[in-house]
Design a binder for these strands. Structure first.
Lengths: 334, 334
DNA sequence: TTGTATGCGTTATCAG
DNA sequence: CTGATAACGCATACAA
């Protein structure tokens, strides 16, 4: 069996509590005994037992990341994992470990309830995909340290962090405007998609501010596939005035548009500029590479981790929300 | 404060140890007292404290997944996370939690040493990217329950799990053979890439068994980019006899080949069949969709989790290695 | 500055 | 089948 704090104490000729203080830098220990303790620690290769420690300190040093990781999630939605990477990084620096936990809306509630009651973890990071009204009230009632990634689509007092999609739209539009594009078109995703909708709003806003109204006919509504993008090109070219730039709501649409334009001999960006949102999965592979307004998911994860830890230290402060900034990544289509 | 096992005992009129036995189904408890205990548990909403529990049982119920998750890992190498999903799923079913931990070769050793000594986790899953000779001997010396994902590129007694790349090559070749392709070409990745090399070996082997030698001139060596693939097409078309099918070592190469073939008006699969390995990132998006020999990373993760758990229960059995099966996914290029 | 005493909440041993 | 008792290993309030 491995050495305990008592063994160290005995070897150093002091009491266990003194050893504890010395190792945790709590309380004061004379330089002399400190040295003796350190020697004893080294001699015995003492390592404090984490299980006993967490029992005594009432802290697991674990934070759980709860999300619905569906089939093929890593390929379909890698963003989730980029967030996790960020979370892990931030937590690690503070000595915390990250637990990955799959859940759906229902099981997320059940898990949280027992995990909190049984003190399995010190804090929770929920992906918006698993939060519910019930979860929100549980978290409020039990005062559970948490952060939601993505804005919960229910009203609640939960603490959340999200990206500003409207701002993304504004940045995309502003970029095109800066390049002199006054006649533009927007190939939009599904109509009920809040993200697409907010981005659209932002883009319209910028143009309006510059005295240009983006009217209904300039917005093509699709269902967000590559072929949808390709199909949209026809409408695009029939617009009057014919647009010199197009904003595509997501990568598949953008790729479809891009390829169809090229098939028709229309050069990008010379004849038609193109900008999209996110860089996955095509923007970094397409020919030419696509300019995109991107969100740094890794940063977002880091920030989320910092938020839970802060919530844990200061339960009183009600940090309600935090918004991350999008970045324009200019590549070759503008 | 929440109720403890003593509160339950008091309320049920029994001793704490009896309650423990009842709840853990260890030892025997009369139906009568069991009922009383259950009622008390319900009345007090008793939940056992996980920290105290792990202290007493000497088990954290945590397994750590250690890998080098580099910059943009989620986009560049989603496979890693698909493995993690599988691991999580298997562990969860057995009541274990998965900890995600970033490390490089150096820090993996350091972390493992202290995590094991401090009893932070019950088992380790290492990605091959972080194992070293030092780690291997540490693990052997301290008898640390573990599994390596991917074959370690050092000699050791570590327990590992991997996919059979040679078999993948055989499957790809066999598929083409079944379709009647006797003249084929292979566009290979980097020469020093063991994976490409093993697949190549497998493909050659199948053809040889069928009396067809794949000679040097039929194998095009590249450095695995899309443009490399496109460039390879020229050589491909100059081969004598001209191949009717091509095996591409990976997705970028395959996409390059596919697009260049189409640019030259060569129809796929009618004029030239194409098969590749893995489905990421292009096989499921390209036009036409690419036939591929694939590895189910999720399954591999599940198996890895089962292996560590088994190692923990039976430290004596020396499970040395485990190999997962590749699957042919026939899409539209063959 | 150091040591003593006690608590953290559960499980396991063993006697009844 | 049940209960008293002793760990499990560390942290901390308080006394010295």
């Amino acid at each position: 069996m491995s050495a305990t704090i008592r063994d160290v104490a005995k070897k150093a000729g002091v009491s266990p509590s003194t050893v504890s203080k010395a190792l945790n830098e709590s309380g004061a220990v004379s330089a002399d005994t400190l040295k003796k303790i350190q020697q004893a620690v080294k001699a015995l290769n003492y390592q404090p037992n984490a299980r006993a420690r967490s029992f005594a300190t009432r802290a697991t040093m674990h934070i759980v990341f709860l999300a619905d990781f569906p089939y093929d999630a890593a390929f379909v939605n890698p963003h989730l994992f980029e967030i996790m990477r960020g979370v892990q990084h931030s937590l690690d620096k503070k000595g915390y470990a990250l637990i990955m936990k799959q859940a759906d809306v229902k099981s997320a509630y059940a898990y949280t309830e027992t995990a909190a009651a049984q003190h399995q973890v010190d804090g929770f990071i929920f992906h918006a995909s698993v939060v519910s009204k019930k979860l929100a009230s549980l978290v409020a009632r039990e005062n559970i340290p948490h952060v939601v990634i993505g804005r919960p689509n229910i009203e609640s007092r939960m603490c959340w962090i999200d990206t500003d999609n409207q701002l993304s739209g504004e940045q995309a539009a502003q970029h095109l405007l800066d390049l002199g594009h006054t006649a533009i078109a927007i190939v939009n995703g599904k109509a009920d998609d809040m993200i697409s909708w907010r981005r659209l709003l932002g883009a319209k806003r910028v143009y309006k501010e510059n005295g240009i109204d983006i009217v209904q006919t300039q917005v093509i509504q699709t269902t967000s596939s590559i072929t949808d993008g390709a199909r949209a090109v026809k409408k695009l070219l029939h617009m009057n005035p014919r647009p010199t730039a197009v904003i595509c709501a997501n990568n598949p649409l953008a790729l479809g548009v891009l390829q169809e334009l090229q098939n028709r001999g229309i050069r990008v960006p010379q004849d038609m500029a193109l900008i999209t949102y996110d860089s996955y999965p095509f923007a970094m592979f397409s020919e030419p590479l696509m300019t995109a307004v991107d969100i740094n998911m890794y940063d977002m994860g880091q920030e989320a981790a910092r938020l839970v830890l802060r919530k844990m230290r200061h339960p009183e402060v009600q940090i309600q929300s935090y918004t991350t900034m999008p970045t324009l990544i200019r590549r070759e289509t503008t």
